[in-house]
């Protein structure tokens, strides 16, 4: 009983800590006044309406979705192909290659962003959403590679061998045997990539110019005046993401 009480107390405290900022954020997004701090002056949907009527924010949201999906698709593709290469057991220097592919994981986003900024400068490449996507592929490919590599096991390999023995071409093997077998891993890698790209700030900040992603737009909103609009954006983004996650969760549960 003591133990149960201790566990319950700890959980309550920690969940309280975890939810505190989100709760405060959401509450004061309904503030009927100019400042998102106590006292709560009454309930208003004014700031939410302002967000939905802000063309720049909506454009940034669409930009973010575009960058997230495009860069994640590319990252999953690159990661999956490389993971399969390693899994064949025929890849020379497989260990070194794996290490090289996962190296970006331990490098700070700020450093990756700065390096790309300097390089694009030298190359004479203008900054745009495409350059942001390039940066996001760099940070997400290692992740996708690691997830796919962990998922490809002996079961896949023997199935692949069987398919090959039956005369299937390499592409068909990959598309019809390996990919479907590790579909959950591919999906997980893709969604994780989308999340990271969706929420990434510093690379997007350094590598974009006029068309910006949502975190960058929120950053400039934050710097253009204190008001509960920032709270409203945060709450709406939260709801959007939560619904997406819930949807995926339900979809995968039904599959089982």
């Amino acid at each position: 009983m003591m133990r149960f009480a201790a566990c319950a107390t700890y959980m309550a405290l920690l969940y309280g800590f975890i939810f505190l900022p989100v709760g405060v954020l959401a509450l004061f997004s309904f503030q009927d006044g100019r400042f998102p701090i106590p006292p709560f002056q009454g309930f208003s949907l004014r700031w939410h309406a302002e967000v939905l009527g802000d063309a720049d924010l909506i454009a940034a949201l669409l930009n973010s979705l575009m960058v997230a999906f495009a860069s994640s698709a590319m990252a999953v593709t690159l990661g999956f192909l490389a993971a399969r290469a390693v899994a064949t057991g025929r890849l020379p220097r497989a260990k070194a290659i794996s290490a090289a592919l996962t190296a970006p994981l331990s490098v700070s986003y700020l450093v990756i962003g700065l390096g790309l900024l300097a390089s694009f400068n030298l190359m004479g490449q203008s900054l745009s959403l495409a350059t942001v996507a390039v940066g996001h592929i760099v940070i997400n490919t290692p992740l996708c590679f690691a997830i796919c590599a962990a998922a490809i096991g002996p079961a896949q390999q023997s199935a692949e061998r069987a398919a090959r023995d039956l005369g299937a071409s390499e592409l068909r093997v990959m598309w019809l045997v390996t990919a479907p077998m590790i579909l959950p891993a591919l999906l997980a890698a893709f969604l994780l990539s989308v999340t990271f790209s969706w929420d990434e700030f510093i690379i997007a900040f350094l590598l974009s110019r006029f068309d910006v992603t949502l975190p960058v737009e929120i950053w400039s909103l934050l710097r253009s005046g204190l008001n509960p609009k920032t709270n409203a954006v945060g709450s709406l983004v939260f709801m959007l993401s939560a619904i997406a996650v819930l949807g995926v969760e339900l979809a995968t549960m039904r599959r089982k």
């Binding site: 490389a82 290469a85 064949t88 890849l91 450093v111 300097a118 592929i137």
Partner: peptide
Amino acid sequence: RDRRRALALAAPALLWTLVFFALPFGVM
């Protein structure tokens, strides 16, 4: 042939990492 095939599979990711990660690092 298998080794070449494996290398070809790993090449895109490696190339990407080389051009957009290792090279920028060198530039820095």
